[in-house]
């Protein structure tokens, strides 16, 4: 398998160089998306399927889509003014990279988390350790992470980012959207439910759902009125609201912020995750489609 790892690593580095040096914006974004998929593959090799799912859906898929939108709107890359810093910068960067590789490879973490997770997993209410960490042991991180999504939504709203107006793609795309959207809903539900015992969870499910919604929007099948955008904004905000209310509610019940009541942990976790899935899907969708219809170009 070492040969596969080496080939994968080489492919990853090649894609990164290509994504950061190609002069054609679309080619560079395409290289970035391939990079995301290869990286997801490498994370399967590193025994992190939860992360691989999220990277493929969010890192490669949605980020790539955002980059494509921006590449279209920003226009072609302007030729840079003659700068001669490239060679010294490359030397410094490769020195730094070499140093970091050496430092990271020589450090080996003492096993502190693994035994703690193993000992606490039965009390967490779920059997997938990653979900247990995300929604129980370190749920406060996750709550703040949802807050980051909300603030990004607020900033995009403030900027009045231009709304994506779907061009007519012809009726050949209709069957695609009509099949993909329901499947994505099913898949999101499956990932959400599966997350408590196997790879999956709110983020992966939310990203898949957002993908299905975007297929509908791009095929022109979804309503795009001002009221719909406003509803989506409220839905995007509601995930954090539910999480915060659950945090304070659990404190009222058990005396500890985000300390779920005994033996009811799974109910709390799945309820929070369900709210997060919807809200993440709405947020990611809105971040891609934008808010305001503006006349410029």
């Amino acid at each position: 398998m070492i040969a596969f790892d080496l080939a994968l690593a080489a492919g990853i580095l090649l894609c990164a160089v290509s994504a950061l040096t190609r002069r054609d914006r679309t080619a560079s974004v395409a290289a970035f998306m391939v990079l995301g998929l290869l990286v997801a593959l490498s994370w399967v090799r590193l025994a992190a399927p939860d992360v691989a799912l999220a990277e493929a859906a969010i890192g490669a898929g949605l980020t790539g889509a955002l980059f494509l939108r921006a590449a279209r709107r920003l226009g072609p890359l302007r030729p840079a003014a003659g700068r001669t810093l490239a060679v010294p910068a490359a030397l410094v960067a490769s020195g730094l990279g070499g140093g970091l590789a050496w430092v990271f490879a020589s450090a080996s973490p003492p096993a502190i988390y693994a035994p703690l997770v193993a000992a606490s997993l039965p009390e967490s209410g779920v059997s997938n350790p990653v979900t247990a960490v995300l929604l129980n042991f370190r749920a406060w991180d996750t709550l703040l992470e949802i807050a980051v999504l909300v603030v990004a939504l607020l900033v995009a709203n403030l900027l009045g980012s231009r709304r994506l107006v779907p061009v007519s793609l012809g009726e050949m795309t209709l069957p695609f959207a009509r099949i993909v959207a329901p499947i994505s809903i099913l898949l999101a539900g499956h990932l959400l439910w599966q997350g408590s015992s196997a790879p999956g969870g709110a983020f992966q499910a939310g990203a898949v759902l957002a993908g299905g919604l975007l297929a509908l929007v791009l095929a022109g099948l979804a309503p795009t009125g001002t009221l719909v955008v406003r509803g989506a904004l409220i839905a995007g905000l509601s995930g954090l609201a539910v999480f915060l209310i659950a945090a304070l509610g659990s404190e009222a019940l058990t005396g500890s912020l985000l300390g779920y009541p005994n033996r009811a942990e799974k109910v709390w976790i799945v309820a929070i995750e369900a709210a997060l899935t919807l809200s993440i899907a709405a947020t990611l969708c809105l971040l891609f489609t934008g808010f305001e219809k503006r006349k410029t170009s």
């Binding site: 012809g170 050949m172 795309t173 069957p175 695609f176």
Partner: peptide, 20 residues
């Protein structure tokens, strides 16, 4: 089966869109 179905339909649609 789902994988095959999705790849088939998205491949066909994307091919069509690029050609268009």
């Amino acid at each position: 089966g789902l994988c095959v179905l999705l790849t088939a339909i998205s491949g066909a649609t994307v091919g069509h869109l690029v050609a268009r």
